[in-house]
């Protein structure tokens, strides 16, 4: 699936179906980047693109913390009409903590129509260290809660894809400005495709990289990259990085 079709409003995404993933393990995806790099905006644009191309019965579920979304709402691509009917197919689900997320995926098989995609913004932030430690009486409580949640999520998506097509995209933050997500050792057990964001050479510009890795290997290969920026309250796509330039953005 092309980055442009997934995360940006492009000429190609308005005229053709989003490509299905070749690999069932790619139905669970991670978008990881530094703070204030437009992750929520990219996630929402992905929601819009999936809703635009999926059956009108299949909603896209956007899971987030209401307070956080209200204080930092997403920016959309310039070509999108804010009154578009497509937004009616995006259903906001506000949750407070990791237990709410687990309950949602535990009951996934109860829904009459399964969603075309589920997006969870700032996934890692739903896991409060202190609460998880108390719940599991374990200093590694947060990690345990994440493991359980990702396993349930994976199981729900595997179940959904036996009946139709459903993708889950999570977003999370880098730690210490390194090019890997927090809790990387946990994520890599369940997620083989990670999109990482790196700050560009100009302030406010970013590079989005599509990297795939083996669940048993630490190496990752960058398959594609795109440049974008957040300008004048819009998500602006600046084009794909040429193949011969990919080697220069490996890190």
């Amino acid at each position: 699936m092309i980055l442009e079709e997934m995360f940006f409003c492009s000429s190609s995404s308005s005229s053709q179906q989003l490509q299905p993933f070749e690999n069932p393990s790619s139905n669970l995806l991670l978008l990881s980047g530094p703070p204030s790099s437009g992750k929520t905006s990219l996630l929402f644009q992905f929601a819009f693109n999936v809703a635009l191309h999926s059956d009108s019965n299949n909603k896209v579920i956007f899971i987030c913390n209401r307070h956080r979304l209200d204080s930092k709402p997403p920016f959309l691509s310039q070509g999108i009409d804010p009154s578009s009917h497509v937004f009616h197919r995006i259903q906001m689900k506000y949750v407070n903590d990791d237990e709410d997320i687990r309950k949602y995926f535990a009951a996934f098989h109860l829904y009459d129509t399964l969603p075309a995609a589920v997006l969870i913004d700032d996934f890692g932030d739903f896991f409060d260290n202190k609460i998880c430690q108390q719940r599991y009486s374990n200093p590694r409580g947060r990690d345990m809660a994440m493991v359980k949640t990702l396993a349930l999520c994976h199981n729900a998506i595997t179940f959904a894809n036996q009946k139709g097509s459903c993708k889950v995209l999570l977003s999370d933050t880098h730690t210490h400005q390194r090019d890997s997500p927090r809790f990387h050792f946990i994520y890599k057990k369940w997620i083989q495709t990670t999109f990482t964001i790196k700050e560009g050479d100009v302030s406010g510009s970013f590079i989005l990289k599509d990297r795939s890795h083996s669940p048993t290997d630490h190496t990752a290969t960058i398959k594609a990259a795109a440049k974008y920026s957040i300008a004048l309250q819009y998500l602006v796509f600046h084009g794909l990085v040429e193949e011969d330039q990919l080697q220069y953005i490996q890190n």
Binding site: A107, L110, K148, N155
Partner: peptide, 12 residues
């Protein structure tokens, strides 16, 4: 039942 499984899964 589907409901019973949902309860069981939520306790994972």
């Amino acid at each position: 039942s589907d409901e019973e499984l949902a309860v069981l899964l939520s306790k994972v």
